[in-house]
C-alpha cells in the first residue's frame, strides 16, 4: 500500500534557512546543508527546498546549495524558487532535484506548465499555490513576489488539471508558521477537485494535525515550524498517523 508522506520543507532566503510567519516575520535557522543532513539521518520520506526570495529578486535558487544537499541526501528532493524556463528546470534537475516546484511562473505565463510537463513529464512538475482568505472570507490566490494575480482559485485548479501537473503543493498563507493546524476545508476542496496527489502545507502544530490533513484528502503533509522549533520529529508525526490507521513508512 502506498504510504502517506511526511515532508519537511526547508525555506531559504538565498543562502540561509529561514522560517516565516504568515510569509512575513522571519527567523534565521542557519545552513541548509546542515539542516538537510539532519533530515537525511532521520530517513525522512522526501525533502522540499524552496527559495522564497528568488522570484522577487529575479533570480533562481542557488544550485550549489542544491548540489551540496543532493550529494548527501538519497531521498527525493523537490526544488523551487524562481524557476521560469525549461533551462532553469533542467539546471535544477542536473543539480540534483527530482521534482521542481513552480509558483510565480504559473500566473506570469499560464502556458508554461503544459510545456514543462511535455518536456519533463508530469511526475517532475509540482504546482505550488499559495492561498489566503480575503476580507469576505473567500479563498484567493496570493503572490509572494507581490504581483497581481488575475486567477480565481477555481480557474487556477482548472489550469493545473489541464496542464497535467504531477502534484499540488497547497499552502495556506494565513496559517503559515502559526502552528494552529492545517486548513482542512481547503485541503478537502482542492483534493476533491484534482486527481493528483496533494501536499498540504501551512499550520501544523502537532502530530494529530498531520492525521487530520490526510483524512481530509492530503496524500502528503509538509511540515516546517514544528520540526524547527519543537521536539516533534517526522517519526513522531508518522507514529501518530500509523496509530490512526494511516499507512506510513517508519
Amino acid at each position: 500500500m502506498l504510504r502517506n508522506r511526511v515532508i519537511p520543507i526547508v525555506l531559504l532566503d538565498g543562502y540561509s534557512v529561514v522560517k516565516t510567519i504568515q510569509f512575513d516575520i522571519r527567523r534565521n535557522l542557519g545552513n541548509p546543508i546542515v539542516v538537510s543532513r539532519i533530515y537525511e539521518s532521520r530517513n525522512v520520506d522526501e525533502l522540499i527546498l524552496l527559495d522564497i526570495d528568488a522570484s522577487r529578486e529575479n533570480r533562481s535558487i542557488d544550485l550549489h546549495t542544491v548540489e551540496a544537499v543532493s550529494c548527501e541526501c538519497f531521498m527525493p528532493l523537490t526544488i523551487g524558487g524562481g524557476l521560469k524556463t525549461c533551462q532553469d528546470i533542467e539546471n535544477a534537475l542536473k543539480a540534483g532535484a527530482d521534482k521542481v516546484s513552480l509558483n510565480s511562473i504559473i500566473f506570469e505565463n499560464p502556458y508554461f506548465l503544459k510545456e514543462a510537463v511535455s518536456v519533463f513529464g508530469s511526475q517532475c512538475i509540482v504546482a505550488s499555490i499559495d492561498i489566503k482568505k480575503d476580507n469576505s472570507g473567500e479563498y484567493v490566490l496570493f503572490s509572494n513576489s507581490g504581483k497581481d494575480i488575475k486567477f480565481s482559485l477555481e480557474e487556477c485548479l482548472s489550469l493545473l488539471i489541464d496542464s497535467k501537473v504531477g502534484e499540488v503543493l497547497l499552502n495556506n498563507v494565513d496559517l503559515d508558521g502559526m502552528m494552529t493546524g492545517y486548513d482542512l476545508d481547503l485541503i478537502k476542496y482542492v483534493s476533491s477537485r484534482v486527481n493528483t496527489p496533494v501536499i498540504a502545507a501551512g499550520g501544523a502544530s502537532k502530530p494529530e494535525d498531520c492525521v487530520k490533513a490526510v483524512k481530509a484528502g492530503a496524500s502528503a503533509v509538509a511540515v516546517a515550524s514544528i520540526f524547527h522549533f519543537t521536539s516533534i520529529t517526522p517519526r513522531i508525526c508518522k507514529e501518530a498517523m500509523a496509530n490512526a490507521g494511516i499507512p506510513t513508512r517508519i
Partner: peptide, 30 residues
C-alpha cells in the same frame, strides 16, 4: 490518484539482487 508518488512496498520474492533487503521493504516510486 496518479502519478503514483511515494514509498510503497515491494514483494521481491527474495530474488538474489535483493540480498540483505527485507521482503516488503518500501522503495520510492514516481
Amino acid at each position: 490518484r496518479l502519478p503514483h508518488i511515494g514509498w510503497n512496498e515491494v514483494e521481491h520474492n527474495d530474488l538474489e539482487i535483493f540480498d540483505s533487503v527485507p521482503e516488503k521493504s518500501c522503495f520510492y516510486f514516481v
